[in-house]
Design a binder for these strands. Structure first.
Length: 972
RNA sequence: GCGGGGGUCGCCAAGUCAGGUCAAAGGCGCAAGGCUCAGGACCUUGUGGCGUAGGCCUUCGUGGGUUCAAAUCCCACCCCCCGCACCA
């Protein structure tokens, strides 16, 4: 774009323009959508935000995309609804307020760096204050970004009416049999007596729960529960390991006595009930005793090993030297240090008689794989870190490729992965073992300082996403849904397959109590699956101030399912009917938007719950998923401190700049790399667009006839761009849409003006540029709505561009001949430049020789043959069947072979265009452009006919091809 | 392991679904020229190699294959990133 000299009224003040239009939008209520049977509707929603942090540029991507889509659909004539709400449900806000109560400097600094004032932070000791503060901040950010939201439908997920709605949903799930109850292990703080999630731990570590099998080895009236991840190796146990230096306790539980490490006893207590400590003992006192393998009945010794960690699992380990490197190493250590045996009064014979017992056979591994592996990796002893590596490697190999050996009875021949489960279940069923849970990525500490353990939540409620019938309904519907981008469909299908029971309630947090068991609060991923339906009635609930206590399950049954009699439900009948109408008008949801992190949970739950609760015609139609935003090439994170709050960014760059930058930075699924320089560049481009456009706001409107070829060319180009932009928008290829609506169209306009030369300021020219610009403003309106509104007004239009009609293609303005003419001129310029570059000549006179008529005829004939499906291989042969061509003989054959490859590789549209246009009078076209070419190359230019040129010193004329005149350049 | 995404000309990144407009868009960087007291900004041009005529040669993770034609389709392999849950 041309930079104009700065003049104040042409300068674009982003902030002023944005505020002006946001105010007008709000006053005129153009984004408030009500049912209107005379118009088709389009309903878009985005995942509502969790208000515990200021919004940043990453959030803005999803919201902007949804808004752009809504704006586009609105311009396409749809009665479009885009609502918004706030998700208060959950525990992180509680954790934050606790941290503020305890004056956590880190969190306070974080809030400060995100622009929260100290006075406000002080109020954050109450969780609701946090939610309300950020709720407001988020909402203002959305308004300042220019989102076309119908705010009458706003709510929070702890509003009483919403809770009633969630209760209704859960009753529905329960009555459909999708709610189950069971036991569930979770990360737990023994000091706070509360479950811990990622936000409750030091360093925000997510506690991972691993499941061990504790196999009970009988010993002196008590059991040693050996914890293992590989119960299938029980056939290869040669001995038991304990740590002689550690403290152990004997406990009584369920009428049995168990001996386990002291820390393990505490954990056992959390996971079991009625655990009573009977006595304490040193590990060393266990050494030398004998225990019995519950499966094989073998009598095996208890031996000392340093690698046994009393903090991990039960502190009792079964030794399988054939398949566990640690075990083999520990035995070797004992064999190499007989003095240690003496220490415990053990006979050397006990250890020397221990022979590895192979249980698993894996292709490519020896019978006793541990021996080789230890040698290969050069593991020194049981305390060598490489032992861990060896263990992992062997486990992987055997788990996936191994099978049980003949000696393992009824498990013989079974793949390890299967045998492991079988044996585990068999042992547990026969009370020879029990599950023991442990934090496997520990130690992890609660923010209170206590070490996180595992607690078994009994009576845990689940939504059973594992239900096969439910899954198949969901899959069927998924097949009918549109998924954008399509690449993600497969992932959705897989997620539906994997999903199992989802714990749907927890003991703490904001949210709705489970209606039939009020000690539990419905957790956030479970109370956010069908709320898009709630928006359709939230307007009425808000405006009519309906008493939430009247919102009984029966009321919702009527509103959403049309069940029951609306005259006897407490809520006035007319309101119920109004809500039902509005729900049926906007549902089903046309497009659901979110980031890709929600694919394996929210978005899939969303389909599941719709399928469970609503009748089939109301199931959602489309899901749109976008990638995240990087900041200067790096992931945004608290630790990198590279999070820019959205509202700060709006002040720095302007809303339209942000909208265009974020959406033009990448296509849907890819991460968009935001950077200061991107935003600056975009800002400058938008300013130039604005200033340039204003030059034409007083140009006459497009009218009448008398267009020359160039005029027709630009008018035609505008149609092509409309076509491309529309198809890009339909598929939400926003980057492509911006690219052609903004950058390509600008290039075309600039080229047009350049080509117009001295006529660039004629009224006719200006009217054509005005036409192109008005279309550009429309095409860009969804992306940069504020600037486009301002321009639209400056161009003298009364209404809002936001509700203006998206441009339709004017097929009558598509002019292939003019497009080809321009292709010819551009091609000639390109070829001439190439020759000048290679030869280094500075030209004094350039001669162009156009193709003789017969070449055009052959050329068109060839194109026609290809178009009719002739194989490129036989092109020459087919062409020669034509008597007119054959009569030309060798000249024609040579010509055909010269152009065949360029003809074959020509894009289909171009081929069709040339065919339908027919022979182009190249001489006429070039002669009309003599002056332009002459000025372009600062040289004389002459066009000569290829039939019989009057001047052709180098015999160039015969090189002429259709659309590529021959060139001869004289100069120095 | 299971599942998904991805490897493109210095960097970032389009193109791959519908093979031919692809030596391959765009941006950054770099180089030359213009502008300027100078720097920045900005504009023009160049940016795989070779070439005094619009051309030729080599290239899209690796190796094969299909085709008149492959970054694009098929097969095998190598490497990188993300998710696997009760957490929004």
């Amino acid at each position: 774009m041309v930079i104009l000299s700065t003049s104040p009224d042409l300068e674009l003040n982003f902030q002023q323009v944005e505020e002006k239009w946001q105010k007008r939008w709000s006053e005129s209520r153009i984004f408030e959508a009500d049912p209107d049977e005379s118009r088709p509707k389009f309903y878009v929603t985005v995942a509502y935000p969790y208000p515990n942090m200021p919004q940043h540029i990453g959030h803005a991507r999803t919201y902007t995309l949804a808004d752009v889509y809504a704006r586009y659909k609105r311009m396409r004539g749809y009665n479009t609804l885009l609502p918004m709400a706030f998700h208060y449900t959950g525990t992180p806000i509680l954790a934050q307020s606790k941290r503020i109560q305890s004056n956590d400097r880190e969190l306070i600094e974080q809030f400060k760096s995100l622009g929260v004032s100290e006075d406000v932070i002080k109020t954050f000791d109450s969780p609701l204050n946090i939610a309300r503060y950020f709720h407001n901040d988020l909402k203002l950010g959305m308004i300042e970004m220019g989102y076309s939201i119908d705010w009458r439908r706003e709510f929070t997920t702890i509003d009483p009416a919403y809770s009633k709605f969630i209760e209704w949903q859960f009753y529905k799930l329960k009555s459909r049999g999708y709610i189950t109850k069971g036991v569930h292990p979770i990360g737990w703080c023994p000091s706070c007596r509360n479950p811990v999630g990622q936000h409750d731990t030091k360093g925000d570590a997510e506690p991972e729960v691993g499941e061990f099998v504790a196999i009970k080895f009988f010993m002196d009236g008590s059991y040693l529960p050996a914890a293992t991840l590989r119960p299938e190796t029980i056939f290869g146990v040669t001995n038991i390991w304990v740590n002689p230096k550690s403290d152990y306790v004997e406990v009584e539980a369920g009428g049995e006595r168990l001996i386990l490490s002291k820390p393990a006893a505490k954990k056992f207590d959390e996971q079991s009930s009625g655990v009573k400590v009977i006595r304490e003992l040193k590990g060393s006192t266990l050494v030398g005793k004998y225990a019995v393998n519950p499966l094989t009945g073998d009598r095996i010794p208890v031996l000392p090993a340093d690698f046994v960690d009393p903090e991990n699992a039960t502190g009792v380990v079964m030794s399988v030297p054939a398949h566990a490197p640690y075990d083999l190493l520990a035995i070797m250590d004992l064999q190499n240090h007989p003095e240690r045996l003496k220490e415990y009064g053990l006979d050397a014979g006990v250890v020397s008689s221990l022979k590895p017992i192979p249980v698993v056979r894996s292709p490519g591994l020896p019978d006793i794989p541990t021996v080789d592996l230890i040698q290969k990796l050069g593991v020194r002893d049981q305390l060598d870190p490489k032992a861990e590596e060896a263990t992992k490697e062997l486990y992987q190999r055997e788990f996936h490729t191994g099978e049980m050996r003949a000696e393992t009875g009824r498990y013989a021949g079974m793949p390890v992965s299967e045998a492991k489960e079988e044996i585990k279940n068999d042992l547990i069923r026969s009370s020879k073992a029990f599950k023991f849970y442990e934090i496997i990525n520990g130690p992890i500490y609660c923010r209170c300082g206590a070490k996180v353990t595992v607690n078994l939540m009994s009576d845990q409620w689940f939504i059973n996403y594992g239900d096969q019938n439910w899954k198949s309904l969901v899959k069927d519907h998924l097949n009918k849904m549109s998924i954008l981008p399509e690449e993600l469909r497969e992932e959705f299908e897989n997620v539906v397959d994997w999903l199992k029971e989802k714990a749907c309630a927890r003991r703490a947090g904001l949210g709705t109590p489970l209606p039939w068991d009020r000690d539990w609060i419905i957790e956030s991923l479970s109370d956010s699956t069908i709320y898009m339906a709630f928006y359709t009635i939230a307007k009425t609930l808000n405006e009519a101030r309906i008493d939430p206590s009247l919102l009984t399950p029966e009321a919702f049954d009527y509103i959403f399912l049309g069940l029951g009699d609306p005259s006897s439900l407490g809520v006035p009948r007319n309101l119920l009917e109004q809500m039902r109408r509005e729900f049926l008008y906007f549902y089903p949801l046309d497009s659901r938007h979110s980031g890709r992190d929600l694919v394996p949970n929210h978005l899939t739950f969303f389909i599941f719950n719709h399928v469970a609760v609503f009748p089939q015609p109301l199931w959602p139609r489309q899901i749109v998923v976008n990638g995240s935003v990087l900041m200067e090439g790096k992931k945004m994170s608290k630790s990198l401190g590279n999070i820019i709050p959205l509202r700060r960014a709006i002040r720095m760059y302007g809303a339209d700049t942000l909208r265009v930058s974020i959406l033009s930075a990448s296509e849907l699924l890819q991460d968009a790399d935001f950077s200061d320089s991107l935003a600056r560049t975009t800002k400058v481009k938008l300013q130039e667009f604005y200033k340039f456009s204003l030059k034409y706001c007083d140009a006459p409107p497009l009218s009448g006839e008398g267009f020359d070829s160039l005029d027709k060319w630009l008018l035609s180009r505008v149609q092509r761009i409309i076509e491309q932009a529309t198809s890009s928008m339909e598929n939400l290829r926003v980057r492509e849409a911006i690219h052609c609506s903004f950058f390509i169209l600008q290039q075309d306009i600039m080229w047009y003006l350049r080509r117009k030369g001295s006529q660039a300021n004629d009224e006719k020219t200006r009217s054509i540029v005005r036409y192109a610009l008005e279309n550009m403003i429309k095409l860009m309106a969804p992306f940069s709505p504020h600037i486009c509104e301002e321009l639209w007004e400056r161009f003298g239009h009364k209404g809002f561009i936001s509700v203006e009609r998206w441009p339709d293609i004017q097929y009558s303005l598509i002019d292939e001949r003019s497009e080809l003419s321009e292709d010819l001129v551009k091609g000639v310029i390109g070829d001439t430049s190439e020759i000048l570059k290679v030869t280094g000549i500075s030209p004094s006179k350039i001669y162009y020789y156009t193709s003789p008529r017969w070449k055009w005829e052959v050329y068109l004939n060839l194109l026609g043959l290809l178009e009719s499906g002739v194989d490129p291989k036989s092109l020459l042969r087919e062409a020669m069947k034509n008597p007119a061509i054959r009569s030309k003989g060798g000249v024609a054959a040579k010509f055909i072979s010269t152009i065949s490859s360029s003809i074959v590789t020509m894009p289909k549209e171009q081929r069709k265009k040339i065919l339908s246009t027919g022979i182009l009078d190249e001489s006429e076209i070039l002669n009309k452009n003599l002056q332009f070419l002459s000025e372009y190359f600062k040289s004389q230019v002459e066009v000569l006919s290829g039939e019989s040129p009057r001047y052709d010193p180098k015999g160039k004329a015969e090189q002429a091809l259709p659309m590529r005149p021959a060139i001869y350049i004289e100069g120095s």
